[in-house]
Computed example of a mutant assay.
Amino acid sequence: MKKVYHLSSCNTCQKILKELNLPDSFEIQDIKEEEITKEQLEEMEALAGSYEALFSRRARLYRERELNKKELSEADYKELILDHYTFLKRPVIINNDEIFIGNSKKTVAAAKAAVHG
């Protein structure tokens, strides 16, 4: 599978997609327009190793809901991501059996090398 989960209203995601210059073989899903399914999230978790790895603590709702004051379990991370798209650390790039999560320079460089390598 070659897929990207992103948010079209996120300038950082747009910049990264432009930089990656993905081949047409990649499916691109705007997670605000097309919600992540339980199956899709489970596929991401299988590659990432945990739901926590996919979870964004930068989401505005993280502090609004005072989640920063709670001990969250893997089940909590999964439910929160399914509950609201902003809890997914973006972008998530899947290149066959590799997954790249987030927007750090190192992650983006690794994704670019994997996609065009």
Rank of each mutant, 00 (worst) to 15 (best):
I81A: 04
Y85Q: 14
K70Y: 08
S50P: 13
K106W: 03
T12M: 07
E45S: 12
D76Y: 00
A111W: 00
D24R: 08
A59S: 14
K106P: 01
E39G: 05
I99M: 05
L47N: 08
C10H: 04
N103W: 06
V108C: 06
P23H: 08
K105G: 09
E98T: 09
C10D: 06
I36H: 05
L17F: 11
M1L: 12
E19C: 01
G117L: 11
A109P: 03
L7N: 14
T37G: 10
E19W: 01
D24S: 14
F26G: 02
I101N: 00
L82A: 04
K38L: 13
N96Y: 07
E35I: 09
S50L: 14
A114E: 08
D83C: 04
S104G: 04
R58V: 09
M44I: 08
S8G: 03
K106H: 12
V92K: 02
A59Q: 09
S104A: 11
K105P: 03
I28F: 00
E35S: 15
T86P: 01
C13D: 11
S73Q: 06
S56C: 09
E42F: 04
N103E: 10
P91L: 11
I94A: 01
D30S: 12
R90E: 05
E27A: 14
K2P: 02
L67P: 06
Q29S: 10
Y85I: 08
A109R: 09
L61N: 08
A46Y: 03
K106Y: 09
R90P: 08
L20S: 03
K18Y: 04
S56A: 12
L54G: 00
S50Q: 12
I36S: 07
Y51E: 03
A75S: 14
K38V: 11
I93R: 01
S104R: 13
Y5I: 06
I93V: 14
S73E: 11
K3S: 07
L54C: 05
A111I: 03
R57K: 15
K89H: 06
L54N: 01
S25F: 00
S25T: 14
R57A: 12
E19I: 02
R90H: 08
S73M: 07
E66G: 05
A114S: 15
L80C: 08
C13E: 02
R58G: 15
K15L: 11
I101Q: 00
Q29F: 02
